[in-house]
Design a protein around this nucleic acid. Structure first.
Lengths: 350, 350
DNA sequence: TTGAAAGCGCTACCAG
DNA sequence: CTGGTAGCGCTTTCAA
């Protein structure tokens, strides 16, 4: 079943059918109607592969993320999708599970599909790939990773500042025994958060103690990490998690060990995913504006992709501290005063 | 940049390049190497549209879901994806947000892409579409909705049994003032759960009271629904939620209103998403084996699609009650005994 | 306003 | 084992 079948039934040429289907030209209304009827009658569905091949501009943007299960990634994908749909684009997602082999496969897939633009929101990266992507001529945006090269825009989050605001807040509360829970310690952006923690600590609270441990980027991973931490004998008064998703897992383990949050131990997340307000207790975290990122992606990869500056732009996102109920002064610490705010309060520490 | 460029550089024909790229035939090793080198040098990426068009069997299966944000849908998608990847298939997702216009668009898209098979995991449906899909000849599986027609397999969950086990358990505990929190009351499968609640109640606890209310399928939606419910003046001792995702929102609202779960009110979910163990308190729920569903989908839509029975098979999934800590005897109810099990216990009520 | 025909890049069949 | 070539279904000039 193809254009020709429709053309035959409507007694016109395939060219005309094509014109009708694409709303081009001014096909005579009568002809148009005949064609439409034939299309309906045959329940004709244009072959999208043929259409793409025939050389119209691609109306598809690709997104590659590390872990769709983590709401952070899902949210930016969804935001991008909304903009795309509203502008007649479609979006293709791919998930890497933090595995660079998957990244390679996904990028190849996207190039093979000749996407109009590609967003890469992952923590893993291989420089060879960047090269390959660059040469493919496809406009791309990298989030949080990779250098700036022609055709590739970079969006980065100012982790340094975000982490600093957490540390500042926590040590202002009197904490000095910290733990950091992360995942995939080999990966750039993750390490970035960890080193941000270390350097902020070195600056703000030189003699604080800090241990670090890693798990998978999942609820269960957070829980496991917390379990290892607890059984290691170290007793931190504040646990800084690499993201909210894992933090929720940490909260559970703490609860099951009979540790109260924040009375016995404070916990912080990162990202401000929706769940961070719905867990118990609600998480103190750092907001990363995922929706804005999604829209940004579209504005870069969408229609403007050709016109925009062709090379290594760099966009920096500034995160905000959001204080909720998972943090408070340490048990026997010298509190910086009655700072505990009401729930949902959104403020920067003084 | 195309096959021909590669062929020229390797001094062979496009046919040979194609063979090498597809691992067919026994191309002479020397030739093969030359081709590979040319491919690498040119950083050639086959045009997937052309490849599909040229008429090889499609290696893509499509999935359409109602709400990717709800982990239930994401989990079955992920399960399907794993099987697909392991067998050299790729999967295309589409999200409908419970809007039937989106469903229409998504199905058209999938047909246009000539997917090898299509899984439709949604609550909304239009019979016209089923028709259209049937005539498209694409093997399809519907989850939870729609009639059985040729080329279309159905997977349904035995909600009746699942819901009955919840009601049985709850009324055994002594509850008689119930509330049901759902979403999109117009949709088939959702109503199915609600009517299952009503009929189970009529059978097991004829003079129990039951109110119903709906919100969006989201954390916030669950919270809002709970809020409306609470402010309506009705004071249920047990709240039955249509799924875990919304239940987590309900738990939050209850907590903020100072209601203890399960001391003041019991809450149940449905699905047994991972989050149901990580919220507070862990949810009593009904398990739906999402991974099994995912694998099932692949087994139906994958390689066997042609050989398998061509028509309206029907597969029924049996759910299990999982009792955790969000349920207990009503405050002033006549408890059926010290039934409260340890956390994580997985059992059917006697 | 409409039709004829030349590709788009690739696979697969048929020769050699 | 390799090359030539006919499509796959659609868009898009170029003519009429």
């Amino acid at each position: 079943m193809n254009l020709e079948d429709v053309a035959r039934l409507a007694k016109v040429s395939t060219a005309t059918v094509s014109r009708v289907l694409n709303g081009v030209d001014v096909v005579r209304p009568g002809t148009r109607t005949r064609v439409m009827k034939a299309v309906a009658e045959l329940k004709y569905h244009p072959n999208l592969h043929a259409r793409s091949l025939a050389g119209v501009r691609s109306r598809t943007v690709g997104v590659i993320v590390s872990n769709l299960e983590n709401p952070f990634f899902l949210d930016v994908y969804r935001a991008l999708e909304v903009d795309c749909r509203n502008n007649g684009y479609e979006v293709l997602v791919a998930n890497t599970d933090y595995r660079s082999e998957q990244l390679v496969a996904s990028i190849r897939l996207m190039i093979g599909r000749r996407v109009a633009g590609l967003a890469v929101i992952v923590s893993e990266m291989e420089s060879a790939l960047i090269q390959e992507l660059t040469e493919s001529q496809i406009p791309a945006v990298f989030y949080d990773v990779g250098p700036s090269t022609p055709h590739i825009t970079n969006i980065r989050v100012n982790y340094k500042a975000g982490v600093a605001s957490v540390i500042e807040y926590l040590s202002g509360l009197g904490h000095s025994k910290f733990a950091f829970i992360g995942h995939h310690s080999g990966l750039g952006p993750i390490n970035e958060r960890y080193s941000a923690v270390r350097s902020a600590l070195a600056r703000l609270s030189p003699d604080a103690e800090l241990h670090s441990i890693a798990g998978n980027d999942s609820l269960e991973g957070g829980r496991q990490a917390a379990r290892s931490l607890l059984s290691s004998g170290y007793a931190p008064t504040a646990i800084i998690c690499v993201n909210d998703f894992m933090a929720v897992g940490v909260l559970r383990e703490l609860r099951e060990c009979g540790l109260r949050v924040p009375a016995d131990v404070s916990v912080t997340g990162f990202d401000n995913i929706g769940l961070s307000e719905f867990c118990y207790p609600p998480l103190t975290t750092v907001r990363i504006p995922r929706e804005r990122i999604g829209r940004l992606l579209f504005s870069i990869l969408g229609p403007g992709a050709q016109t925009a500056g062709q090379g290594g732009e760099e966009i920096v996102i500034e995160p905000d501290l959001i204080v909720r109920e998972s943090t408070g002064p340490p048990k026997s610490g010298h509190s910086a005063g009655p700072l505990k705010p009401g729930r949902g309060a959104e403020l920067r520490p003084a």
